[in-house]
Design a protein around this nucleic acid. Sequence first.
DNA 1: TTATGGATTTCGTGG
DNA 2: CCACGAAGTCCATAA
Lengths: 200, 200
Amino acid sequence: MYAQCDVLYEGRAASTLETGNYLIIHKGDGSIQIQAGDKTMPRNYQGSGATLERREHILISRRKSETLTITIHKIHQIVYLPNWSVAEITIVRTEKDLVNKLFKNWIDYIDGDFEMVKTEFPTSLGPVDLAGIEVDDHHHLVEVKRGNISIQNISQLNRYVSAVRDAGKVVSGYIASPKIGCRARAYCESLGFRYLLLDF
Amino acid sequence: MYAQCDVLYEGRAASTLETGNYLIIHKGDGSIQIQAGDKTMPRNYQGSGATLERREHILISRRKSETLTITIHKIHQIVYLPNWSVAEITIVRTEKDLVNKLFKNWIDYIDGDFEMVKTEFPTSLGPVDLAGIEVDDHHHLVEVKRGNISIQNISQLNRYVSAVRDAGKVVSGYIASPKIGCRARAYCESLGFRYLLLDF
DNA sequence: TTATGGATTTCGTGG
DNA sequence: CCACGAAGTCCATAA
């Protein structure tokens, strides 16, 4: 529906959208979004499973503890979209692809006498992407990223390494990605971790 | 445009969307998105500043190193939205609101003989939300979150505290938010930080 | 249902 | 233009 309307949101936060002409999209899964004339993200939205109620010229979408109230002032156009597809996209070059590449070519990247290599290796502070365990129990933990490495990513690796170290293991830490900036690189080295260039 | 089409994406990653009926939204800022019949997020998209080129029944949207290729098989409907508004929403209960509340009521939350309190206090590993500096140079760093505290949030605070500590200061760390889980709480205390209940 | 982390995250701000 | 961090992030997955 393309309409002149205003929108109130009340839930985790609260927001108001002034009266204007917006595109309101309501889908079969209950999700609803109010799109304005620029940017990708909707101004307001409600996720799958929301329920829509109509009271005169007011639309109310509820979901858990969140409420979206759309006051319609003038309907410009209503369009129904028959047989709207719900196919998913197939995507490549994700982080998972990089993890698999490193997993299959482990010995090309990391030296050691390995007993096993695991993905999603659990630590007390969350799972690390890859872990290689040597016969002498030396742990090699690798955190993989598909994009540029940030300081936060190094921090995340540090968390996992600390967790396993606190569990009494000898640990080496690695961050692997196609790119890293000099700031993150410096932080990486200051914590004693190694950077692995890993691309698609 | 509501059309039967398929979509190819090539850029940071690459994806294919099988032929189906999708809603294609092209906005005045150049952004474009392909919406399917469920979920809030578009299946494919291109941000502001993209350029759209038409070659027969193929649409090509380019932006930096990214290309979206939409092959139109059958146009079901084309709709123009005149006077589409670009108003922004006004939102409350953001992290900024919480930071301001703590800034204005600092003494109600943190004990000490403070010389100054600053927001966005710079450290060598990024800016921390709030920093109070006592007359004896003791630094109190506070990271604020609007939602539930995660282990990552504690890790972020740890990064800032470490940075200032490495600069030779005496530092206390605090995480402030309306909510915290027991796992994050335990990690917080294990690092010697304090949790501040701070809500709207 | 909650928690944890990825994402073509998007978006805003500041350097 | 990059770099960094918030977001009502959304979203999938595992516990």
